[in-house]
Each structure stands twice: as structure tokens, then as C-alpha cells.
Amino acid sequence: MTDMKIEDYLAQGGKLTNPSNVPARYRAELMRLMATFVDSELAGAAGFADVINAGPGIKERIAAAKIVMEKTDNADKVLKIMGEFGANTEKYANHHPWADRLPRDADIGTNRTEGDMRLAVFNYPLAGWSDAVVMNLLMGLAVGVQMKEFTGISYAPLAEAFREIAPVEARHAELAAEGLERTSADNRQASVDYWWPRVAASFGKDVSTRATQLEAYGLRKASNADLREEWAATATKALEKFGLTAPKG
């Protein structure tokens, strides 16, 4: 059997299976992708933890606590894989104040804050229970769309971790929908209007400088714009059930 370049192997859909056989640049892109997920889950869980007590009833508080616990667990699953590449997992979990948020009216577009890789949307504060539920529904559906990409990723141990994570995250979106059904707060549409563009921005810029390379590495398939469109269609339908509408434009 002849030797094959690892780049050619990846371009043909090959899977990598442990840290010793990944090229340096692939390693870096994979680490960045994992850090983005871990930071977003940790920041998401930390932000949501504050909302548990705002739940209107026991059931809601249980659901919120479950979401906080499971998102932290999902972060742990991926952080473990980063650890196999040398990341210091104990320090990593504590190197950043994950509960920190910017002011509600900050406008940072798709930018990250200094020092962590959480998606921009996790830098905005939640404003009470129904606002948290709306955010969780919209973001939960966005994660669902992303998971379809992530479960097919070329680093097999990570693809497997995501296959375990995907149904858990899907359930969080369902819990959000159930929660929304039980809230009748009249500011729900205002929350949708606030979170919609911010969740939409979490799919990244339309023109991504790294897309070609990530695709060649088997770390992504669909474009940011395609994923965002898929989410917008799903989320619009989900909101309709509650008499809510997606903002235009």
C-alpha cells in the first residue's frame, strides 16, 4: 500500500482518530472549534444558572437546572478531548469568569470578547424568565442546525462526542418550547426581536476566510449563510405556534 498524504486523505472524507496523527494546522482549527463550543456551553450554562430562581414554578426551575447541568456536562465532554491534545482542563474550566456579560444594549456583531471564544450571543445578559426561555428556544434551534455539521466532523472522537451531545441539546430546545407555552408574558415578542439578530449572528459572517480550509479538513460542510437560513426557517415555524413572528430583515 502506498503512502498517502494526510491532507489528501481528509479531502476524500477520511477520519482522524487520535492526537498523534493530526497535522499542526488541523490541530489548531480543531482546537479553535472545540474551544468555541466549550466556551459557549460554559458561558451559556453560567448565564442560565442565574435564571433558575426566576422560574415561575418548580417544574420550570427543574428544567432550568437540568439545562445548566447538562450544558456543563456537554462542555466537559469536549474539554476532555481538548485535554488529550494537551490543554490543561482544570485550569481551562476556571480561567475565565463565564458568567460575565456585557450591557444589554452593547452591539458587538460577530466579535468575540477578549480571553474567551464563546459565540458573541453569549455575551448578552438575559432579562428575566420569559426572555431566557425565548433565547434558549432560538439558540437551541441554532445548536440543532450546527449539530448536523458537527456530528459529521472528520475528527472521529469529537464527532462521537457530538453524537452524544446532539439529542441532549435538542431536548433543551424542546424544554424551551414547553416553557414558552406556559409563559404569557406580553414582552415575549420584544424578546424575540432582541435575540433574533444576535442568534442569527452566531452563524458567523457570510464571507468566511477560513471556510475553504475548514472544508478541506473535513471540519465543516455547509456555508454560514446556508446554516443560518435553515435555522431561520425552523425558528420562524417554531415561533408561529406561539403567535410570535420573526423580525424582518
Partner: peptide, 16 residues
């Protein structure tokens, strides 16, 4: 230059 990084705190090794 689009150099790789994540934590900027010396713990994750993405920027090696």
C-alpha cells in the same frame, strides 16, 4: 494574519 488561538491564557494550546 489569521493565527489560531482560543483562551489567550496559556492553558489550551490552540496557538502553539
Amino acid at each position: 494574519m489569521d493565527a489560531p488561538y482560543a483562551c489567550k491564557a496559556g492553558v489550551c494550546s490552540t496557538c502553539r
